[in-house]
Design a protein around this nucleic acid. Sequence first.
DNA 1: CAAGGCAAGTTACTAATTTCACATACTACC
DNA 2: GGTAGTATGTGAAATTAGTAACTTGCCTTG
Lengths: 210, 210
Amino acid sequence: MKSDHIPSATIQRLAVYVQVLGWMQRDQVKVVSSEALAKACDVNPSQIRKDLAYFGEFGVRGVGYYVEDLITSIKRSLGVDRVWRTALVGVGNLGRALLNHKEFKARGFHIVGAYDCDPFKIGEVISGLEVMCTKTLSDWVKELDIEIGIITTPPERAQRAANHLIESGVKGILNFAPARITAPENVFVEYVDFFHQLYSLAFSITLAGQ
Amino acid sequence: MKSDHIPSATIQRLAVYVQVLGWMQRDQVKVVSSEALAKACDVNPSQIRKDLAYFGEFGVRGVGYYVEDLITSIKRSLGVDRVWRTALVGVGNLGRALLNHKEFKARGFHIVGAYDCDPFKIGEVISGLEVMCTKTLSDWVKELDIEIGIITTPPERAQRAANHLIESGVKGILNFAPARITAPENVFVEYVDFFHQLYSLAFSITLAGQ
DNA sequence: CAAGGCAAGTTACTAATTTCACATACTACC
DNA sequence: GGTAGTATGTGAAATTAGTAACTTGCCTTG
């Protein structure tokens, strides 16, 4: 198939597939059918086949998918078969937790810069990384070849952090701050706010209770 | 309109509307049109009107929506116009960060119980809350009238934590652990994993670079 | 007090996503 | 080496979501 436009829902699901396939690999599973994977991911089997078809033919008819190969193929398709260099802005509670989060390195996202505008935090070393002044960000982003910025500032400073990152030529931003960010359309912004999911839960529960 | 089945995409958007309306309220904006709100939320104006129409008529024709009233109406529609009592299982880095997160209380989600199975952590007080043994969870959940469980354990202990919560009659689970959870269908599970969004970013950037 | 402007609510349409069903191709076994 | 079984890949059908166009009703102004 190898289509040009791929729905973002597909991308989200592919991320799930990779995760679930990873657990299967750890459990020594060598081959998996779309049906088995579908059950594990709680989606429709055709959905999986179609999602994969956007990128190529990864399975063997009559057999299924080789787990290891499929992981490799999906990761390559998503562009996560390499290291992404990131910088984090805003060393508060959340920022610290993320800096200490081992999973980042494990999944290929290396945090190579930590920034804050609070003079008391500058110079502090967290998880082997020295906190730098946000004003010097653009110098470092270029030098360190950073492509993704992570914003963990308070909401009122999110846009300023974003501006610094955009100015420095970052291509994507993951924003944890509860604030909308304006960015040129060649800079991709993703919002993380688990309260939206809590709202979903609250709604589902409320609805079910009637 | 007042339809019965509401798409989950609508719920997600309503959560965004509430957030953006909150900022407008702070900026002393009294009335907003679907067009203005749409611009701020980066969606289509008809989309907003349609999303709201699922729940009732909240606007005034020829005028727009009264910001304060609309916030109230959406919150009531979503079921977040009240306090939700939650319990957190897994007092690691992330668990601690969430326990210290003031926004929970601000948004009406009160964390009234913290649990861990590590004896060294039991008894510790975080943000005014004493960490309890996970095994005693079911007694407390019933006593404290907890409806939502938050899982921040390592992945291998996520299902066990979920089982404890389900057994205690929790109606919804917000799972931060990178693990799929099986639950009866009357218990709603939402997954939080910002790596999926990082994958999306990586994909978008990769695609744009070609 | 009437008429016009304006924005919500609604209906009709278009586009997209998901599901289904079948043909294809591979493996294994006889 | 052929045949049966099985699970993929795919095109078409069904469903769902999103957009645009229209109607309704409120507010303001002359």
